[in-house]
Amino acid sequence: MSELSVDHVLGIKYLTPQDIQLIHQTADQFKEVINRPIKKVPSLRDITVANLFFENSTRTKLSFELAEKRLSADVINFSAAQSSVKKGETLIDTVNNILAMKVDVVVMRHPNPGAGVFLSNHINARIVNAGDGAHEHPTQALLDSYSIREKLGAEVMVCGPATLIPKHIEKLGVQVELDLRKALQWCDVANMLRVQNERMDISYFPSVREYTQQYGVNMELLQSLDKEITIMHPGPINRGVEITSEVADSDQAIILNQVENGVAVRMAVLYLVASKIKRN
């Protein structure tokens, strides 16, 4: 297996285990590349990538842009804040206009779940989903799993206030735990997620202070466990809310390794997606 089974990377659920393995193996090689004195390869020299960000993002956008540049692709950036979307242009029109400029790959962040899938049915370019609202953020999942790869195939438990845990999530084969201490005691790696206030149109918990008391990780809590667990966080961190500074900056945290791996994983995704665009 040295080719993806899909044309677009829209979500983890569309990938096979072999695809994920291939992306991780390819990322290994790119991780070596980005640690060289000259961190650039010419693979995507004749590929143009458009980064379409209909929603704010720092890390993902920088990470994708760096990945594209290190693969020598031509890059154009678009953010909705400064565009005609504000003037009422539809998504397909916006994207088709950009594609008329001969773009091969579209990396898109959009607040609406399914925006990537919708686009892939209507336009003629490869799509990489860089987050579609409350739905999927596949490259984040790939870099998280890459960062704990030796534990792939691990058992997964989700923990948080009952109001934030999706209904029927246990049908996906994960365990649900409402008590943070029990969850930490059970796991080897804890991936702390940010409270995404921007997606919460109603109040899911009484106050941030109460959330921190129930679900915030601090040093005291970590040291009271009878083992040392690894702490991950996709960023941006709300210091003092889901995680204290002390924990975020400790040796147990691999948060900045995740960022480095993010570039390598995104290079792998773009390389593998582009390699399926045959040249005439």
């Binding site: 040295s2 080719e3 090689q29 070596e32 390869v41 010419p42 693979s43 693969l71 390699s275 040249r279």
Partner: peptide, 22 residues
């Protein structure tokens, strides 16, 4: 040295190119 990312037949050959370690 792995030369996969530097090859001139990327997207031209029918066989996908698989990278090795450098």
């Amino acid at each position: 040295l792995d030369i996969t990312f530097y090859r001139d037949d990327f997207r031209r050959s029918n066989e996908p190119l698989k990278a090795n370690s450098t």
